[in-house]
Structures are given as structure tokens and as C-alpha cells.
Amino acid sequence: MSFVITALIMFIFWILLSGEFSFILILSGVFSSLLVSYMSHDLLIGEGNIKLGIKRTFRFIRYLPWLFWQIVMANLDLVYRTLHPKMPIHPKIIKFKNDLNTDLGMVILANSITLTPGTITIEVNENEFIVHTLSEESAQSLISGEMQARVKKIEGKYNV
């Protein structure tokens, strides 16, 4: 199953890259996507706890606009702090508990943290996130756990 899905995704990717529809190139596209999915179909669709599913993909797409808005806010905040002559930054390191079940969820949360207001993920393990924050407000908003709740929603109920 994962073989077929990977091959399909790869073939779509090939068409997008190539844009040529001569016989030889389409044939080599089919062959290449089969070859790639033979070599690494267990990587993209994932075994065990980095599993991508259709429902998760849709929930992830619904999460993106909120993330994008947060990124814009983050950058405006950062521009202010960078260009202010006194540089109003109060860096510190905070830790908070990791409630997520899947590796993919942790990755999404960690990269979202890195992209949003004044925070950078330093370390992720099963128990906790260690995060470097630039200001007091961003530390507070992270501890309140809104982002984690949203990512948990992407993960869904089942624990794969």
C-alpha cells in the first residue's frame, strides 16, 4: 500500500518538475517513481509512529493558516526588538511537558515553535521540550499551551 501511494506522489512530483510530455520522459518518469518508491517507500509514508495519514494531512493543512499568521506576528515582534536602540530582549531557557504521542506531532510542534514569536526549540525528547525564549510574553504564551493543543488536534485520537 505505501508502495503505491509513494509511487503516485513521486509521479506527480515528476510531472510538476518536468513539464515535458514526450514519450521517453514520461516512461522514465514512471520508471523513476517506481524505483524511488521501491528504495524508500517505508521512509515517506513511515512505519510505526511517524505515520502520515489522509486525515492527518487534511488537519495539518487546516493548521497552516493559523501558523502563517503566527509567523507574521513573530516577525513583526522580532523586527521591533532588533531595530529598537536598546534591544528589549530578556533571553531565558524554559522547559515544559511534552504531551504528544507521535514523532511527527513533536516535529510539527518543534518547527512551529522555531518559526513563531521569540522562541526556538533546543531539545525534544519523550518527556519535555526545552525552548529558548527571547521575551517574557512569548514564554508565557508557550507555557499556556495553545500551540500544543492545536498540534495535538492534528495528531488525532488514535495512538499509532
Binding site: 509513494t6 518536468s18 520522459l25 518518469g29 523513476s32 524511488v36 521512509l43 514523532d103 516535529v107
Partner: peptide, 24 residues
């Protein structure tokens, strides 16, 4: 964890891109 997951997502695309470069 992060490097591992991101790598496993990206590797198939990189391989297909390599084959695309060879074919074109």
C-alpha cells in the same frame, strides 16, 4: 527526532529529483 523525521520525508523527493536531473 526532528532531523530523523524530516530526513525521512525529504529523502524520496531528493532521490526523484536526482533521477529527474539525469533524465533531463
Amino acid at each position: 527526532i526532528i532531523v530523523r523525521v524530516i530526513a525521512s520525508i525529504l529523502i524520496p523527493f531528493i532521490q526523484l529529483y536526482a533521477l529527474y536531473v539525469i533524465a533531463h
